[in-house]
Computed example of a mutant assay.
Amino acid sequence: MTFLLHFSFSFFSSVAFGFIANIPRRALLASGFTGAVGWMIYFYLNQLFHNIAFPNFAAAFIIGCLSIFFSKKKKMPMIIFYIPGLIPLVPGGPSYEAVRAFALEDPNAGFQKLMVVTTTAISIAGGLMVTSLVEQIINKWLRFRRV
């Protein structure tokens, strides 16, 4: 039941963001699936490792791989699938809590939440960079094999 609940909420949040961001309608289901799979990877790795860096990195990497797959399959830019797919991973709650802690003059809690936000953002960016690097290596290898 937990799996179905998490999958459906992450799917609909990605689709809703894609709808709001006005991506093409034929990309909505693929971007929703990308976001749902990314969230499930994050959720289960977070349960397994009890930290935020590696699960966010792995989820961003998988989201990047799925975005590349769907971009080639549907002949659309990768970003159309990547950005809505990242929406479930965005640390909105910790960001709000950090700002709230600073506003309530509790800098220790604010910096703690700010570190969570920073770690998450760096992990997501690292996942995208590694995805792009792997794609370039595979493309060069495929071009080399054809020659």
Rank of each mutant, 00 (worst) to 15 (best):
T2C: 02
T2P: 05
T2Y: 07
L4N: 06
L4H: 04
L5F: 13
L5E: 15
F7G: 10
F7I: 10
F7H: 10
S8P: 08
F9P: 10
S10E: 10
F11P: 08
F12A: 10
F12C: 10
S14E: 07
V15E: 06
A16V: 10
A16L: 12
F19M: 12
F19K: 08
F19N: 13
I20R: 01
I20G: 02
I20C: 04
A21K: 05
N22Q: 14
I23D: 02
I23Y: 01
P24Q: 03
P24E: 09
P24K: 01
R25S: 11
R25K: 11
R26G: 03
L28D: 07
L28N: 02
L29S: 12
L29V: 15
L29Y: 12
A30R: 04
S31M: 04
F33Q: 07
F33C: 07
A36I: 13
A36T: 13
I41S: 11
Y42W: 14
Y44K: 09
Y44P: 12
L45E: 12
L45G: 09
N46I: 13
Q47D: 15
F49R: 03
F49P: 05
H50C: 10
N51D: 15
I52L: 13
I52A: 09
A53P: 06
F54I: 15
F54L: 15
P55D: 11
N56H: 13
N56W: 11
N56R: 08
N56P: 11
N56Y: 10
N56V: 11
F57N: 05
F57M: 07
F57H: 08
A58I: 14
A59T: 14
A59N: 11
F61A: 02
F61L: 14
F61D: 12
I62Y: 02
I62S: 04
I63L: 03
G64F: 03
G64V: 08
G64A: 05
S67N: 01
S67D: 07
S67W: 01
F69G: 01
F69Q: 01
K72Q: 01
K73D: 04
K73N: 01
K74D: 08
K74H: 02
P77N: 00
M78G: 03
Y82L: 12
I83L: 05
I83C: 00
L86G: 03
V90K: 01
P91Y: 02
P91T: 06
G92T: 05
G92W: 04
P94S: 05
E97K: 08
A98F: 06
A98P: 07
A101C: 07
A101V: 12
A103Y: 13
L104P: 09
E105A: 07
N108I: 15
Q112S: 15
K113V: 12
V116E: 15
T118N: 07
I122H: 05
S123C: 09
S123Q: 10
I124S: 00
I124F: 04
G126T: 07
G127Q: 03
M129P: 05
S132M: 05
V134Q: 00
E135G: 00
Q136I: 04
Q136R: 04
Q136T: 11
I137M: 00
I137D: 03
L142M: 05
